[in-house]
Protein backbone atom coordinates (compact mmCIF):
# COMPACT_ATOMS: atom_id res chain seq x y z
CA UNK A 1 0.00 0.00 0.00
CA UNK A 2 1.27 3.47 -0.86
CA UNK A 3 -0.12 6.98 -1.13
CA UNK A 4 0.14 9.46 -3.99
CA UNK A 5 0.60 13.20 -3.65
CA UNK A 6 -3.10 13.95 -4.04
CA UNK A 7 -3.83 11.65 -1.08
CA UNK A 8 -1.21 13.41 1.01
CA UNK A 9 -2.83 16.78 0.28
CA UNK A 10 -6.27 15.38 1.05
CA UNK A 11 -5.21 13.86 4.38
CA UNK A 12 -3.53 17.12 5.34
CA UNK A 13 -6.68 19.04 4.52
CA UNK A 14 -8.96 16.66 6.44
CA UNK A 15 -6.65 16.96 9.45
CA UNK A 16 -6.55 20.77 9.01
CA UNK A 17 -2.77 20.77 8.72
CA UNK A 18 -1.29 23.42 6.42
CA UNK A 19 1.12 21.69 4.05
CA UNK A 20 2.98 23.74 1.46
CA UNK A 21 3.40 22.29 -2.07
CA UNK A 22 7.14 21.92 -1.45
CA UNK A 23 6.52 19.69 1.58
CA UNK A 24 4.25 17.24 -0.23
CA UNK A 25 6.88 15.01 -1.96
CA UNK A 26 8.82 14.69 1.29
CA UNK A 27 5.68 13.80 3.30
CA UNK A 28 4.65 11.31 0.66
CA UNK A 29 8.01 9.57 0.99
CA UNK A 30 7.80 9.49 4.80
CA UNK A 31 4.24 8.15 4.82
CA UNK A 32 5.08 5.47 2.30
CA UNK A 33 8.10 4.43 4.37
CA UNK A 34 5.83 4.04 7.42
CA UNK A 35 3.22 2.15 5.41
CA UNK A 36 5.73 -0.31 4.00
CA UNK A 37 7.13 -0.87 7.48
CA UNK A 38 3.64 -1.61 8.84
CA UNK A 39 2.97 -3.77 5.79
CA UNK A 40 5.30 -6.40 7.24
CA UNK A 41 2.55 -7.20 9.75
CA UNK A 42 0.38 -8.60 6.98
CA UNK A 43 2.80 -11.53 6.75
CA UNK A 44 1.39 -12.80 10.08
CA UNK A 45 -1.51 -15.23 9.83
CA UNK A 46 -4.29 -13.88 12.11
CA UNK A 47 -7.04 -16.20 10.86
CA UNK A 48 -9.51 -16.78 13.68
CA UNK A 49 -7.75 -14.43 16.12
CA UNK A 50 -10.01 -11.92 17.92
CA UNK A 51 -8.88 -8.31 17.43
CA UNK A 52 -7.22 -7.16 20.64
CA UNK A 53 -8.89 -4.22 22.38
CA UNK A 54 -6.80 -4.09 25.52
CA UNK A 55 -3.49 -5.47 26.75
CA UNK A 56 -5.02 -6.38 30.11
CA UNK A 57 -8.12 -8.54 30.50
CA UNK A 58 -10.45 -5.95 32.02
CA UNK A 59 -14.04 -4.79 31.64
CA UNK A 60 -15.04 -1.25 30.85
CA UNK A 61 -15.86 0.80 33.95
CA UNK A 62 -19.43 2.18 34.15
CA UNK A 63 -20.52 5.26 36.11
CA UNK A 64 -23.79 5.90 37.92
CA UNK A 65 -26.06 8.48 36.29
CA UNK A 66 -25.42 11.41 38.63
CA UNK A 67 -24.42 15.01 38.07
CA UNK A 68 -20.99 15.03 39.68
CA UNK A 69 -19.03 17.41 37.54
CA UNK A 70 -19.21 20.91 36.24
CA UNK A 71 -16.09 22.88 35.74
CA UNK A 72 -17.76 26.28 35.82
CA UNK A 73 -18.25 28.35 32.70
CA UNK A 74 -15.41 30.75 33.51
CA UNK A 75 -12.99 27.83 33.89
CA UNK A 76 -14.21 26.23 30.65
CA UNK A 77 -13.52 29.36 28.59
CA UNK A 78 -10.44 30.44 30.57
CA UNK A 79 -7.97 29.43 27.84
CA UNK A 80 -10.10 30.53 24.88
CA UNK A 81 -8.35 33.16 22.73
CA UNK A 82 -11.67 35.06 22.58
CA UNK A 83 -14.76 34.68 24.74
CA UNK A 84 -17.79 36.78 25.55
CA UNK A 85 -20.46 36.19 28.21
CA UNK A 86 -18.88 32.75 28.72
CA UNK A 87 -19.41 31.77 25.07
CA UNK A 88 -16.41 30.71 22.99
CA UNK A 89 -16.11 33.23 20.17
CA UNK A 90 -14.80 31.95 16.82
CA UNK A 91 -14.63 33.37 13.30
CA UNK A 92 -18.05 33.14 11.68
CA UNK A 93 -18.93 29.65 10.46
CA UNK A 94 -22.34 29.34 8.91
CA UNK A 95 -23.89 27.25 6.16
Amino acid sequence: MSVDQATVRRIAHLARIAVSPEEVPHLQQELNAILSFVEELSAVDVEGVEPMTSVVPMKMVWRKDAVTDHAGADVVVANAPVSEDNFFVVPKVVE
Binding site: V76, V82, E84, F87, F88, V89, V90, P91, K92, V93, V94
Partner: peptide, 14 residues
Amino acid sequence: SLHDQSPTDSFVDL
Protein backbone atom coordinates in the same frame (compact mmCIF):
# COMPACT_ATOMS: atom_id res chain seq x y z
CA SER B 1 -23.24 27.49 17.53
CA LEU B 2 -25.05 30.82 17.47
CA HIS B 3 -24.50 32.82 14.30
CA ASP B 4 -26.72 35.83 14.94
CA GLN B 5 -24.93 37.42 17.89
CA SER B 6 -22.30 39.21 15.84
CA PRO B 7 -21.73 40.06 12.16
CA THR B 8 -18.23 38.58 12.10
CA ASP B 9 -18.19 35.86 14.78
CA SER B 10 -20.00 32.69 15.82
CA PHE B 11 -20.66 32.02 19.52
CA VAL B 12 -20.22 28.48 20.83
CA ASP B 13 -21.99 26.97 23.84
CA LEU B 14 -20.93 23.44 24.84
